[in-house]
């Protein structure tokens, strides 16, 4: 699966409180959450971005709370993929579990600049910077996680494999 979009570049330690502030956590409606995506970091983000765009950040993206509302807000806003040097662990789990594509790619996180056009091939783990004519490679997912992603997230995986046992 391939995505193409404009890069929105942010720094290190982008936390879940700025991705979706807690004052909006009295709902879990994804569309409602999307309206406030990254509001406390970049108030105009939701107005500026276009569906398919890509967030590029430094290390420890998604640190802080366990709120799944954070990847949900990013996904529902229309972001196709998040590329970072590293992700905080709960955010990493949550993104995989809900089917938000994420890639750990240090070189890409460093080289891609704000507003670059970027194309991502998830299966190959290949990131192409169309503006600069560069290609970067992401860390491949472990097999188990690839199975989760192929199944369409954790819930489908559970329904296929363990759902019967839970009946």
């Amino acid at each position: 699966m391939a995505y193409q979009g404009t890069a929105w570049k942010y720094g290190d330690d982008i936390n879940t409180d700025v991705i979706i502030p807690a004052r909006y956590l009295n709902t879990s409606e994804a569309k409602e959450l999307a309206r406030h995506c990254l509001e406390d970091l970049d108030a105009a983000f939701v107005k500026k971005m276009r569906p398919g765009d890509i967030i590029v950040a430094g290390s420890n993206f998604g640190c802080g709370s366990s709120r799944e509302h954070a990847p949900l807000a990013i996904k529902a806003a229309g972001i196709s993929c998040v590329i970072a040097r590293s992700f905080a662990r709960i955010f990493y789990r949550n993104a995989i579990n809900i089917g938000l594509p994420i890639l750990e790619a240090g070189e890409a996180a460093e080289r891609i600049q704000d507003s670059d056009r970027v194309e991502v091939d998830l299966e190959k783990g290949e990131i192409r910077n169309l503006t600069r004519g560069e290609i970067y490679h992401a860390r491949p997912f472990p097999d188990f996680m690839r199975e989760l992603i192929t199944a369409g997230g954790l819930i489908n995986y559970v329904r296929e494999r363990a759902g019967g046992a839970a009946q």
Binding site: I90, R93, I98, G153, L154, A162, G163, A165, A166
Partner: peptide, 11 residues
């Protein structure tokens, strides 16, 4: 996250 919680409640 919440999805992990859901899966653990089931399995």
């Amino acid at each position: 996250g919440s999805t992990d919680m859901a899966a653990a409640m089931a399995t």
